[in-house]
Design a protein around this nucleic acid. Structure first.
Lengths: 155, 155
DNA sequence: CTCTCGGCTGAGCAGGTTGTCCAGCGCTGA
DNA sequence: TCAGCGCTGGACAACCTGCTCAGCCGAGAG
């Protein structure tokens, strides 16, 4: 139900050399092509690998500012708020959370000034009572998965 | 310096059918193969597409619990804290932020009980003064980029 | 107005890769 | 002892990639 060492090495190879072919991967892993191919298919079938979507950099698209907004929602307005936020392109991700606030979303904007526009649009909805924004300055650990894959393979 | 309609459609195709070939993409876009290939290369060269890394689902790896932790750091300890957190596999992402707290990180754990272990490990470092954790319950808007790509292409 | 540049087209070619078979082998559990 | 399962090594046709080339077209420069 989990992954083994070979799966982990395959995932690492794919993460490090995204455009690698199955044949080349099998060579580097020291296994037959059929094996690498079967492993890859199983990882996809099990949902371990969701896909190979292009990793697009919002900054290169003209949206260099990232922020996280914590939202407090009026009771019973959750569904409407979700739909509202899903309609804002600058909302890249939305979670419902425990603790302070009810939702957490990741936003991008063209500039800090533009961030105001985005936030106004985000909170300009009657179901949203309050919001707190944190602007991202640095990203010391960019989204990563390999260390976790290694950890998962170790059992 | 930004992207045009054709770039946007190519990005969408790649996002929707990640394993599509350049040839097939050119057919669906109604352009010559060379054009699709040149566009893709430019998107990669400009950094709009960072790569095609496998999109790994932590839940399928045995880490179904996601949380966000806001950390307050002791003055001048930033560098050490970053290194500390970079060494924790369950830390998938780390940002330095403005506003309440100094850093925000995304964590995963094997269970809510296991989350305690992860948080203990995260905050078990002298440079970290306080932390507030928000557990993710739902993810109404999973990480997405296409709406933003559309918006970026519209100018 | 004419020239040049950049981007797109359609085509071709060699070489590598994919999808799909197959037979054989060794380990594991019944 | 046997069946199942995963891995190996090999084979094949179909397909895609990287590369090159000549021609076409619109935009901007002179």
């Amino acid at each position: 139900m989990t992954i083994d060492e070979l799966d982990a090495r395959l995932l690492e190879l794919l993460a490090r050399h995204p455009r690698i072919t199955v044949l080349e991967a099998s060579r580097r892993l020291g296994v037959a092509r059929g094996t690498a191919q079967a492993r890859l298919e199983k990882l996809l079938a099990r949902g371990v690998i969701r896909g190979f979507g292009p990793d697009v950099d919002p900054a290169a698209l003209g949206y260099p500012v990232t922020a996280f907004a914590t939202l407090e929602i009026r009771q019973g307005q959750g569904e409407q708020v979700r739909r509202h936020l899903a309609g804002v392109p600058e909302v890249l991700e939305l979670h419902t959370i425990t603790g302070e606030g009810d939702m957490l979303c990741r936003l991008v904007a063209r500039s800090t000034a533009d961030l105001q526009r985005v936030i106004d649009r985000v909170v300009g909805f009657e179901g949203i009572l309050r919001s707190a924004t944190a602007i991202v300055m640095e990203n010391p650990v960019p989204a990563r998965i390999i260390p976790l894959v290694r950890a998962a393979a170790r059992d």
